[in-house]
Write a protein that binds this DNA or RNA. Structure first.
Lengths: 209, 209, 209, 209
DNA sequence: CATTAATCGAGACGGTACGTCCTGTCTTGCA
DNA sequence: TGCAAGACAGGACGTACCGTCTCGATTAATG
């Protein structure tokens, strides 16, 4: 723990790093993720291929890095009305998902994650989890205010909510719009409130006469 | 009134077709979708590459075809209790999704669908939609029995339900098990019943005091 | 040798045969021999591939057949002056060789003959030898008239003569024209007359001072 | 006055180059030119196909390059007797042409030259012309010594001479042996000496009485 | 302030797979 | 039976990228 000055660490060229990320994004936009190649990124960035391989393990990793530069942080509002807030938030997410500079990239990265566990982990840990924390916080707040039952598995609730949006992002079998965002918010929060009824026998949902 | 001879249609070799689909499945199982190549399928099936290219537009299409041969039809029970039935059904889906001969393939195909619109369409039309029709029917029945509100968009409901499962299939950030299946069924059906409250002002979910 | 009426032999379609030969020639002209394929000939002729394979052993054989339909017979004049006659004859050959509908085909066939012995044999026996017989006759006549020595190997003389022309046909390192035809005739016939000098010691050609 | 370092020029791998040429030759020997493929050369040489395509335009070009490594330089003797020298030289050429490691390759390359102009040019410029220069020199010397007429077109003379040998190399309609070599030398040189007679009217060759 | 070692651009290398083209054989109705 | 049509197994084509590997040419901290 003596001389530990840090500069020793890296002579990495920031210029090249940025050029690579820019090129990766541009190529994704222009040709679609599948058609992007390391070779093309290198050529476009005016960089040797080695420079990419030196710092990233795979194409997915590069694109993931590049992707974070366009990935907006959607604010989670707190008006006191948790349903309204979720509607607002999910509408924001939908807006992001339908942005041509974002949605397709996220889809492609989830696709890539099917084969490349490194991409999956990075996507989850670096991107998804941090962003969801804020939403979980908002829901936790609602719990504290007794607007939601206390014993809810908030992570799972988030997954249902996001899963619904991902479904339309990935499979495109329906419009990914504000109405859908509202619908999801209502169904899921509605379901949360209906949830604790462990005794379901007389609930209208459960038993045909 | 002769038996309508239509033999002209296709000189396609059924033997080759089956050999190709078998080879595709086997390779997927052994090496994972990403490592499967048309070349390998052809070699394994003892078939010329051209024979594959003649009848399928892409690797995804071949695997999708092969995939349908292992894709079990999950029965949608009707006990009168729609929530119980959905729990049962979703548990079946979860079981399928966690089958090593199925889940990863489906994930990979959804991944492929991100780049290959043909795969996306085929996946939706040939695989997903037909299977969901039965579930939609069951929900429609519940509507008729007034267990679910009548004005629900059942397609969207299904998407929320399946989206929740897909989320864990694709991102693996939580266990894809019976408990999750039940949780999803309860949240979503619960949400459906809570839904019609277009006037949300006094609903416990919506407004902090 | 009894019932020997011929029709039993072949139900071969003359229409197809001609269509194939025409197509072969046309394709040679348009794309060059190397780019001609059996597939293309069949398509162009509106004929099944099998029909070609049934009647010819190889592409070379088809083209050779087609080739004979454009291969003119060069007349061998007999004016009494063998040198003049050879000049005339070789000029005719040169004219044929430089015909775009002939020279390149002959070159290609000789090229093909390097790999395909059947083509070589057919080319020699069916095409070259018959045509050379007339020239050999003319030279034999000259021998009888003592214009050429009697013990000459006329076949070899012809080969020298034609070899000279083939050289320019195949390698194109000089103009294949009348002047060259005359030059060759003079050199070769001149050499024939100078030939018999088995005693070469005092001949100007042989011994430097 | 430093030793002009020009190292920048080429990072081409000499090892690969040689491996490719060796493989090409070996395959020609073993299977014949027509059956050699770039794929096989690459495999045999332990080289990527791209490495071949990077440096040679066609199979013909590779084989031509390889071919030059076995193409012996036939010495052109100068004993003072030009006819004897040509007999000797042509006998050497015949010996080379009948060498199984040479003759068939040359034949095949001339065949290839019919379709591939690059091969034709390279064959002429890189192989044939340089070798013929020495023969032309020898003939020029004979002219200076008045053993041959001064106004002869030596290039054309060479073509007649070589054409005669090529004829038998390519069409194999007679033995390619010493006797033929001598015959060709005598005919052609004899014809050269007889040549200058521009007035041919009284020449024994020309006019039947 | 010069030295020196990591990093850079460039791009050749051994490979793998691509999707296409053609080969020669086979099969299926039509004439 | 011969034919047009064209599917079939197979093999080579020439191209595109992969990830690794030299090459000098920077370049920045250290010695």
């Amino acid at each position: 723990m003596t001389t530990a000055s840090k500069p020793l660490a890296s002579r990495r060229s920031e210029t090249s790093r940025l050029a690579i990320l820019d090129a990766a994004l541009a190529l994704c936009r222009e040709q679609g993720y599948a058609r992007v190649t390391i070779e093309a990124i290198a050529a476009r960035a005016g960089v040797g291929k080695q420079t990419i391989y030196r710092w990233w393990p795979s194409k997915g990793a590069v694109v993931l890095d590049a992707f974070e530069r366009v990935a907006a942080e959607i604010p989670v509002p707190d008006t006191g009305d948790v349903l309204a807030d979720m509607r607002t938030f999910l509408t924001g997410v939908v807006r992001l998902f339908t942005d041509d500079n974002f949605g397709p990239h996220l889809g492609a990265l989830i696709g890539e994650a099917q084969y490349d566990p490194a991409v999956r982990t990075a996507l989850l840990e670096q991107y998804l989890k941090p962003r969801r924390a804020a939403v979980a916080d908002r829901l936790r707040l609602a719990q504290q205010h007794r607007q939601l039952p206390g014993e809810l598995d908030l992570t799972a609730v988030l997954e249902v909510m996001f899963g619904a949006l991902y479904h339309r992002l990935l499979l495109r079998n329906g419009p990914l719009d504000q109405a859908y965002a509202h619908f999801v918010a209502e169904i899921v929060l509605g379901g949360c409130s209906a949830q604790p009824t462990t005794d379901r026998s007389h609930h209208p949902v459960t038993q045909r006469k």
